[in-house]
């Protein structure tokens, strides 16, 4: 995302980068960023909490007016829970020694190079769309 932010700014479009990973964003060093101390997968809020979601987006958008130098970062100061114990289990190294094969303890999903649909219905819907006159892929304006 840092590369996209930088190219947008170089082309004249200001950006604000939202982030839940403060150290990664500090390394990437975007022009304006807003940190929210939530678990990954919740960059813009909590499920079914529209009041909080709006507050978080307002906080992020305020950076367009508030940021006054390249590399500026603010902290939303909103907490995920009453305590931070959710951080204890984030990406802790898996137990080693169960096997000698590299990667076999990796719990992340395999990197398949075919489209990965949320449901089988979505795959059917995409197949149906593709090829008809509504298809934005065929019109060259979408994928």
């Amino acid at each position: 995302m840092g590369l996209i932010a930088r190219q947008l700014e170089e082309s004249g479009i200001p950006t604000v980068t939202m982030t839940c990973a403060r150290d990664i964003t500090e390394a990437v060093n975007p022009p304006r960023s807003v940190f929210l101390d939530f678990p990954l997968g919740h960059t813009t809020g909590r499920a079914h909490d529209p009041v909080l979601g709006r507050r978080i987006i307002e906080g992020a958008l305020a950076a367009f007016a508030d940021a006054d130098h390249p590399g500026w970062m603010s902290d939303q100061s909103i907490h995920w829970a009453d305590d931070d114990s959710w951080k204890d289990s984030v990406m802790r190294p898996v137990a080693s020694g169960t096997t000698d094969i590299p990667g076999s303890d990796d719990e992340r999903s395999p990197r398949r190079d075919t489209p990965q649909y949320q449901s089988i219905d979505d795959a059917s819907a995409a197949e149906k769309t593709h090829g008809d006159e509504q298809c934005l892929v065929c019109k060259g304006v979408d994928y």
């Binding site: 840092g2 590369l3 932010a5 930088r6 947008l8 700014e9 170089e10 082309s11 004249g12 479009i13 200001p14 950006t15 150290d23 990664i24 390394a27 990437v28 060093n29 975007p30 022009p31 130098h69 390249p70 590399g71 984030v90 990406m91 802790r92 190294p93 898996v94 080693s96 094969i101 590299p102 990667g103 303890d105 990796d106």
Partner: peptide, 27 residues
Amino acid sequence: DRTLAQYEALGYPAYSWATNPGTPPWA
């Protein structure tokens, strides 16, 4: 740090994070 530790535990080569020292571009 946690990703580096995880990759090491899994026997992968160290992940190379994007870093951009210096002043970022600004519009």
